[in-house]
Structure formats: C-alpha cells, structure tokens
Amino acid sequence: MKESQQNTTDFGYKTVARDEKASMVADVFHSVAAKYDIMNDLMSFGIHRLWKRQAIACSGVRKGHRVLDLAGGTGDLTAKFSQLVGDTGQVILGDINDSMLKVGRDKLRDLGLVNNIEYVQMNAEALPFPDNSIDVITIAFGLRNVTDKDAALKSMYRILKPGGRLLILEFSKTDSEALSKIYDFYSFNLLPSMGKLVANDSESYRYLAESIRMHPDQETLKDMMENAGFEQANYQNMTGGIVALHRGFKY
C-alpha cells in the first residue's frame, strides 16, 4: 500500500503514476502555450501583473546578479530581471516545457531583450547548475506542477549562492469563507468555460483549478522550505490569500 502511494501523485483531483505526471503537465502547457498570456490576463483580470511586481520588489535583484526564473513560462519576470541585472548579470529562463520556452523567447526577443538572457529546458527536481552558482531563484505559478516538490526545493537550495534567496509565487489558500466560495464558483464554473471559449481547451483550465486546490497551503509550503534548508522562510498573502509569495534565504 505504502509502495503504491509512493508511486502515485496528484494530477489535479486525479491520482496518477509519478512518472506520468510530468508528461501530463507538459501536455497541458503545450496546449495552452500559444494563448498563455491572454488567458492569464483574462483569468486574473490582469492582477497577475501586480502579483509579479510584488515578487520583483521582494527579489532584491541587483546589477550583476545571476537570476534563475524557473518555470518562467512566457518570461514576464525575466523581462524585468533582464533590465535589473544589466549587461554584467544574467537571467536564465528555465522551463520544463519547450513550447512555453519558445513562446517566451519570441516574446522577449520582440521586446529587444537579447543580451543577457539564456533559455534552458530543465526539470526543477534536478537543476542543471553547479552548487552555489545562482543569486536569486524565482518560481512563479510553477511549483504546483512539479511532481516531487521536496526534491525541487532541495535542488534550488543546492544551486543558490550563500546569501541568495528563493521566491515562490503560487496560488494558495484564502482564509475568508466568502471569498473562498466566490473563488471556487469562479474556478470550477467560469474558468473552464473561459478556457473553452478563448483557448478551445476546457480540460487544461479545469486541471489548473484542481491543481491549485491540491497545492500545499501557506504554512505547509513554509515548512517544506525549512525542511529543504532555507532560513528565515516567510510568506505574504496577496488578494486575500488567493496567491502567496514565499521567500527563503540560504546562508
């Protein structure tokens, strides 16, 4: 029984074999990549831009830093970091999904951001960087799709330089009952319909809503960060806890 639990994981509300989750998540993002930005704006009413702004403000990224924007998708954070680190710094846009990377690369090139950005397809559970080599890691709306979150956090801790920090921007749990009901209705009724209408894909957006509910809450994620070795782990809730920004340091 225990062995079978170890071999399975959640995929939204479904339970699937661990080694299948990555490819199933990949299918979801291959499917939504082209319409990812427009859907983000539609689904969050543009508020995702404010959540990301807050993450950048808390990142402490400065000129010359080496930044890893993990699960960076279409490069919203990378675009800002690229300007902040300047010519002497470097931003690595990492994603497990090559469709998302391609969309991100096209978008950033169109913005004229080419000098200091690298695009690397990578799995967050086994990051392809030496120990102590990155100043700041951000993972925005990506951690919930990772199969083994503990392994991913440990891998991030390993590659961070001493003094470096990790920022996790992710959907979380709201503590307001009224907001929670409205949010549930929106997520399970309106969101898949919007996905169907705009991206012709309701299943991917149903997975999005389900995966948010299966993601660890604020305190659990904080404990997971501490278990991975991060110090001074803390979080701030945004929009009533619908999204939380976790931050941890490596000393």
Binding site: R53, A57, C58, K80, Q83, L84
Partner: peptide
C-alpha cells in the same frame, strides 16, 4: 518606494525593504 533607472526604463516599487 524604490526608484531605479535601468538604462531603458524606470522601475518603481512599493513596500521596499531591500538595501
């Protein structure tokens, strides 16, 4: 608030607690 000029644009942030 934190204000920085990156050579291409301004960036302005609130709740700034960094150095």
């Amino acid at each position: 608030f934190a204000l920085t000029y990156t050579g291409q644009s301004f960036m302005l942030f609130n709740n700034f607690q960094e150095q």
